[in-house]
Design a protein around this nucleic acid. Structure first.
Ligand SMILES: [Zn+2]
Length: 538
DNA sequence: CGCCTTTGACCCGCGC
DNA sequence: GCGCGGGTCAAAGGCG
């Protein structure tokens, strides 16, 4: 019964665990780049044998009869994901009827009965189709969420490797920076730079800060701690310093340094732009909404969440749809988790913390801050699949990861590439899916109004003139040229590795061990997906 | 019953 | 000082 009609269906009752270590069904995102168009649903359908059976066992075809009205929505969804084979179910549903009774008792009756039954049969089919499409829609949401998470994983790895490479040549950069003088830099940014490095400011207005940099940061910290402990005191016992205490001893670093990092990490924001119709993107954490505001210049309200996976976890996030394209969800993370994370949450957490670290370290050695006092923005590579943007606009330095255009060049209904200002027609080349382009731009609040402002991000060693002219490869001014190539190769190798998740986990562990403070649960537990799967565990 | 969302009030920094 | 905007609090109610 219904075996064939259900064929393309995936079990969406549980999140697809693309990153789960114990799961054999891995989705290789790199396969999507080379025209294979192996988009998430497709791959999942190909390997999801178990899922099929599960669906057969639990799917209730007639539980919702009024879903025909969803047709429009589904249609839209199909359009949205036209190359994701989401509409696969439509054909299959009509290929076979599981109502064999229709044909039998009818042969002796008139044509009217026959057509009536036929009609009923068709209606049944239609219902099934709609239900099926509903399922597929949910599945698509799931998959796209997981896809975003995985893509961010990749970004994390890229960043980490870039950073490692950069660290090797950091001295060179410091020397470069030395001759940048007498320019005002946003104070916050200067603080961050100070807190993570020994850069000295020559700006007279920030002389005081420079002189008492650590004291100032300590001040900031105490402010934050104060606020956090206030919150905690309400929810819990005076464990307010848990998130401090469990980290300070770990890295044998002077306490105030660690505190400084905490303070700055709390301030740094990592913004993720992803196309999602869900109210929140799936990041594996538990969140509790604590506020909602109408933000200026955006018809969509901004929602405020805090992490509830552990009492006193300082991590907050803001979720808001982009005004220009409300299918794009902007999630801004702030802070570092003070507790172990389930595997499902590792991707986002590691990405955000790595990005934050990158932002901080980038701020110290880059000359950009001096070149663009109000905002710092970089593009690693134009017209590629994802974009990481760093901005130091007040009050919070923010790094934005743009995941709105998937690697396989699939575009949403709007088909526009954010921040693509025509420098490079996107059609000219098809970058590897893991490429992480950065475009330098200046934006003025609204977001739509952007303007070029080429700059060099020290962390990525971009050469200003080369960035826009030679898209297909990384063009880095320094020894990093071969570096990025090897990086791509390494990434590809990782992707091809059957132990992809293991490699990923190792890489992430190394990242986290690198000292930004997130703890990761050793990833051997399978139930995390469901365990954290209820409400705002996205 | 515990956890969550909702939502108006409140706080705070900033610019005028 | 005042208004504005971003961010947070906390009471009230909903939900499973
Ligand atoms: Zn947390």
């Amino acid at each position: 019964m219904g075996k064939y009609s259900l064929r393309p269906t995936l079990d969406t009752s549980e999140p697809l665990l693309l990153l789960n270590q114990n799961n054999n069904t891995r989705w290789n995102p790199f396969a999507m780049g080379g025209g294979t168009a192996a988009s998430p649903p497709y791959v999942a359908a190909a390997e999801g044998e178990d899922s099929h059976r599960k669906v057969l066992a639990e799917m209730d075809l007639f539980s919702t009869r009024n879903q025909i009205s969803n047709k429009v929505v589904v249609k839209n969804e199909n359009f949205h994901a036209n190359d994701l084979d989401v509409n696969m179910g439509l054909n299959l549903l009509t290929t076979r009827s599981d109502r064999s009774l229709v044909g039998d008792g009818i042969s002796s009756n008139g044509d009217e009965n026959r057509t009536t039954n036929k009609l009923a049969n068709l209606q049944n089919e239609l219902q099934k189709m709609n239900i099926e499409n509903q399922r597929l829609k949910e599945m698509y949401l799931q998959v796209s969420n997981n896809y975003n998470a995985l893509q961010m994983h990749l970004v994390t790895l890229m960043q980490q490797q870039e950073q490692e490479l950069r660290n090797e040549s950091i001295h060179n950069q410091d020397q470069k920076v030395d001759h940048q003088d007498s320019v005002t830099v946003p104070r916050q940014f200067m603080e961050l730079g100070q807190s993570t490095n020994e850069m000295t400011s020559r700006d007279s207005s920030s002389e005081e800060k420079t002189r008492s940099g650590s004291a100032l940061n300590a001040l900031e910290l105490s402010k934050n701690v104060d606020r956090d402990s206030k919150t905690i005191g309400r929810e819990d016992t005076p464990d307010s310093d848990v998130w401090m205490s469990n980290k300070a001893p770990k890295l044998a670093i002077p306490e105030n340094v660690e505190q400084t990092n905490e303070a700055t990490m709390r301030k740094v924001r990592v913004s993720v732009r992803a196309r999602s119709e869900a109210p929140m993107i799936t990041d594996g954490c538990q969140w509790r909404k604590y506020g909602q505001k109408m933000a200026k210049g955006n018809p969509c309200p901004r929602a405020y969440y805090r992490c509830t996976m552990a009492a006193g976890c300082p991590v907050r996030k803001q979720v808001q749809r982009w005004a220009d394209d409300q299918t794009i969800l902007i999630t801004t993370y702030e802070g570092t988790h003070n507790h172990p994370l389930p595997p499902a949450a590792v991707a986002m957490a590691s990405t955000t913390s790595a990005a934050a670290t990158m932002l901080l370290s980038g701020s110290i050695s880059s000359a950009d801050g001096f070149m663009n006092p109000n905002l710092l923005a970089h593009t690693i590579r134009p017209n590629s699949s994802s974009i990481a943007t760093i901005s130091a606009s007040a009050p919070f330095p923010t790094i934005t990861l743009d995941l709105t255009h998937p690697p396989n060049t699939f575009q949403g209904p709007n088909g526009s590439i954010p921040f693509d200002h025509g420098h490079q027609p996107a059609s000219q080349f098809s970058p590897p899916p893991f490429a992480m382009p950065l475009q330098a731009f200046h934006h003025h609040g609204g977001g739509g109004d952007t303007q070029y402002n080429q700059s060099r991000f020290s962390g990525l060693q971009l050469s200003n003139n080369k960035v826009y002219n030679q898209p297909p490869q990384f063009h880095q001014s320094q020894p990093q040229v071969s570096l990025s190539n090897s990086l791509s190769a390494a990434t590809a190798a990782i992707a091809a590795d059957p132990n992809f998740t293991a490699a990923l986990a190792a890489a992430i562990t190394s990242i986290m061990g690198g000292g930004n403070g997130s703890n990761i649960i050793p990833s051997n537990n399978n139930e995390t997906n469901n365990t954290y799967g209820s409400k705002h565990d996205q």
